[in-house]
């Protein structure tokens, strides 16, 4: 019964990975003097380590990931907490709040692009009118970076809300009441009781968002194209640039492999940190 699934997974997942892994050890650029792939050993990887543009991309991506992850967890949790209560028009709020999840990233990027175009979009208009801020994405790197972060928060917080909401509604009532009787204050109850119950859901959510954030491409590509300069050129965008316009397949593959490796290491570190907390306490 499992065989067809495994077969498809193998074809669509493992084979391309192996292909990329193999290519990463070759010099292969269709525009080079010799367009045929040539075995290059670990040269591509050696080149990566000294590629300042790439290292900058990595740093930017990590910064971006940190900001969106923390914001999404905090806002997502607050919204999930809010939705555990009853209030008027809750159903409508939940639906509207989930809508961004259903929009394709490329469309999200396009929408935000339209909203931020100077002379046309509402954001530059009101930023100028209300705060007297000259808002031009293509000119100010910080504005571009902040806008990209906010766009990602807007797009993906609902996912965090939904998973945390599911987690929260699975926290049994009795231990919380018991803790209340045992004399704990609400903050204490949150740290000591609710959070441990939420840990599996929290861990899964963080993994999903971490991996997604590390490979963000399309929204940003649509909104800023990685600019101005390299202000929002995340790893994904850099790989795209190397592989498509520059057709440097070997080098791009090496980047992809390194990114995958980095993602796995980050997830692993996070996992150890979060599950190890309990061990240390003992």
């Amino acid at each position: 019964m499992l065989a067809p699934t495994l077969f498809i997974l193998f074809i669509t997942g493992f084979v391309p990975f192996l292909y990329v892994l193999v290519v990463s050890f070759f010099d292969w650029n269709t525009f080079a003097q010799n367009p045929e792939p040539q075995f290059a050993g670990v040269n591509n990887f050696r080149r990566l380590v000294f590629d300042e543009a790439f290292l900058k991309s990595v740093g930017l991506t990590l910064k971006f990931t940190f900001f969106v992850l923390v914001s999404q967890l905090v806002i997502g949790f607050a919204l999930a907490k809010l939705m555990m209560r009853n209030f008027p028009l809750k159903g409508l709020f939940r639906t509207v709040h989930t809508l961004p999840l259903m929009i394709a990233p490329i469309a999200v990027g396009a929408t935000w692009r339209l909203m931020t175009v100077p002379g046309l979009g509402p954001i530059p208009h009101f930023m100028g009118k209300w705060f007297d801020i000259s808002y031009v994405l293509s000119r100010f790197p910080d504005q571009a970076f902040a806008t990209v972060v906010i766009m990602d928060i807007w797009h993906w917080t609902p996912l965090v809300t939904l998973t945390l909401l599911a987690g929260l509604s699975n926290v049994p009532e009795e231990p919380l009441e018991q803790a209340r009787i045992d004399g704990a204050r609400e903050w204490r109850i949150f740290w000591d009781i609710t959070l441990p119950f939420l840990k599996p859901v929290l861990l899964t959510t963080i993994f999903i968002r971490l991996m997604d954030a590390l490979r963000t491409v399309d929204e940003v590509w649509m909104l800023t194209g990685g600019g101005p300069g390299a202000a929002t050129r995340f790893i994904g965008l850099y790989i795209w640039k190397i592989v498509f316009p520059k057709t440097d397949y070997g080098y791009g593959s090496a980047m992809s492999v390194l990114t995958l490796y980095m993602t796995i290491v980050l997830c692993w570190l996070l996992y150890v940190a979060m599950t190890g907390m309990k061990e240390n306490k003992k």
């Binding site: 231990p175 009787i181 004399g183 000591d192 441990p196 309990k278």
Partner: peptide, 14 residues
């Protein structure tokens, strides 16, 4: 300052 024992014990599983 009351103590309570719940039907399903309400122990902290972790």
């Amino acid at each position: 300052n009351v103590a309570m024992v719940f039907q399903n014990y309400a122990l902290y599983p972790h």
